[in-house]
Structures are given as structure tokens and as C-alpha cells.
């Protein structure tokens, strides 16, 4: 099972995402931003970092990378795609996911071990979790405040598309404590926290991130 990880200039957690895929038992394939080819992968992770420095709105430039020209239609066609942190921002900028990520309320970068509640297990990336489970995952960003208009928020809630919610304190001022969302089909998931940092004993606060990658291996096997 091949899972691609895109590297943009300024991607930082691509290395970690590749490791997480390997730990889960998948084959990690490096995808280059300038190469308009998904190389036949069964799923794609858009990793964290500061693509192109994020001096403009986060993810706004990465969205136009050649590889995105292939990724966007593939995702619309059902390819499992996970956007983590900057990757979530890129997916929102690409309109694969609704809403936007804005600067945290205190305007500072904040890194902590964050408890999340798993609100939906019916996505390609969360099927291995128990619904309602609380997991501890690394959270680190300066612009991770999820915002959307009331209508969109109601729709997301109504359709069960809020995948993760912050528990025990909202670390960035996200509306309705939303940490992650999915598209209508459930194949595209984006979240600010970093499951790829939580897959190895002794590195990171837990092993709670591993199920993202085992979920998608199961989902991809079923496609």
C-alpha cells in the first residue's frame, strides 16, 4: 500500500509523516511539489510546515503547486487525503475542505500536548478509532484557529463532518472547538494537531496518532 507525502519548499513534517506511514506498515512515497504526478499512490498526506514560508496567507501559494493540479481532482474522485496543520490550511485554500485557519487569538505560536475527542470514525483516516474516544496529540501552530460562517458550521455539525474537537481547553480559539473536519465523502480530512508526532514509544506524548495511518491502510485496501 503506497501513501504519498508531498514536500513543498518549507514543508517540515514530511519526514515525520513518512515515518508514521512506515510505522503503520505502509510504503511511504515522497511526492515533489513541482512534479504534477501522484505516482500511483493509494492515499496522500499533505504535511505540516511553512510552505513557501507562509508569508502570505498560510497555504495560499502551495495550493497552486503543480502537484496540487493532480491532487485536487483525485481527492474529488475519492482518493484519501489527509492535511495536517499546514496541510489542512492547503486543503482549505484548495476548497477541498470548508472554512479557514486564522492566527491564534493571542497571535503567538503555541505548542502543547492536546486532548482531542474523536467525533467521527466514518472517514478514511479515523475508522480505527472508537467514536467518542479521547486522544492526546501534539498541537503546534500560530495560525490554527478554525473559522467558518454559522451556516457552514451548522452544516458540518449536522452532517457529522466535525471529525475532532478540542477537549480540556481550546488552544487557539477555533470556532466550536473544532480541531478537524472532513469533506462530504469522508475521504479528505484536515486537522491542525499532528498525529504523525505520536506514533513511536518515547517520542511524542502518546501513540494515539498511529490509528490515522492504520485507518487509511484499511480504507485503501478496501478501495
Amino acid at each position: 500500500m503506497k501513501i504519498g507525502v508531498i514536500t513543498f519548499p518549507g514543508s517540515l513534517d514530511d519526514h515525520d509523516a513518512m515515518r508514521a506511514i512506515r510505522v503503520a506498515g505502509g510504503d511511504a512515497v515522497s511526492l515533489w511539489h513541482g512534479d504534477a504526478d501522484l505516482h500511483g499512490v493509494d492515499a496522500v498526506v499533505v504535511p505540516g510546515g511553512f510552505s513557501y514560508g507562509d508569508y502570505l496567507r498560510c497555504g495560499a501559494i502551495a495550493r497552486f503547486a503543480p502537484v496540487m493540479d493532480r491532487l485536487i481532482p483525485a481527492a474529488q474522485g475519492g482518493l484519501p487525503v489527509l492535511g495536517i496543520c499546514n496541510g489542512f490550511q492547503v486543503l482549505c485554500e484548495s476548497h477541498l475542505l470548508p472554512g479557514a485557519l486564522t492566527p491564534r487569538t493571542d497571535q503567538r505560536f503555541y505548542c502543547n500536548d492536546q486532548v482531542l475527542k474523536v467525533e467521527s470514525t466514518s472517514t478514511a483516516w479515523t475508522s480505527a478509532y472508537d467514536e467518542g474516544a479521547e486522544i492526546t496529540v501534539v498541537h503546534k501552530n500560530g495560525e490554527g484557529r478554525f473559522v467558518a460562517d454559522e451556516h457552514t458550521l451548522d452544516e458540518l455539525e449536522g452532517e457529522g463532518r466535525v471529525v475532532f474537537r478540542y477537549v480540556g481547553g481550546n488552544p487557539n480559539g477555533s470556532y466550536r472547538d473544532i480541531a478537524g473536519v472532513t469533506n462530504e465523502r469522508g475521504n479528505v480530512v484536515g486537522l491542525m494537531p499532528h498525529p504523525e508526532h505520536c506514533v513511536e514509544e518515547g517520542y511524542g506524548p502518546s501513540l494515539d496518532g498511529l490509528a490515522f495511518f492504520t485507518s487509511v491502510l484499511t480504507a485503501a485496501a478496501g478501495v
Partner: peptide
């Protein structure tokens, strides 16, 4: 210290406020 990323690259075995920071070199 919460304004710093202590996890990136996934090799941090220990960071502040510990007595010493520890990073893995060989995976």
C-alpha cells in the same frame, strides 16, 4: 517554551523543562 516547536522531525526524546534535551541521531 510553549512558543517553540519541540516535536518536529520526531526525534525528540526529551525537551524542556527537563534537565537536558535529548534527540535521537540514528533512527
Amino acid at each position: 517554551t510553549d512558543q517553540y516547536d519541540r516535536y518536529v522531525r520526531g526525534n525528540t526524546a526529551q525537551a524542556m523543562p527537563a534537565d537536558a534535551g535529548i534527540v535521537r541521531v540514528d533512527e
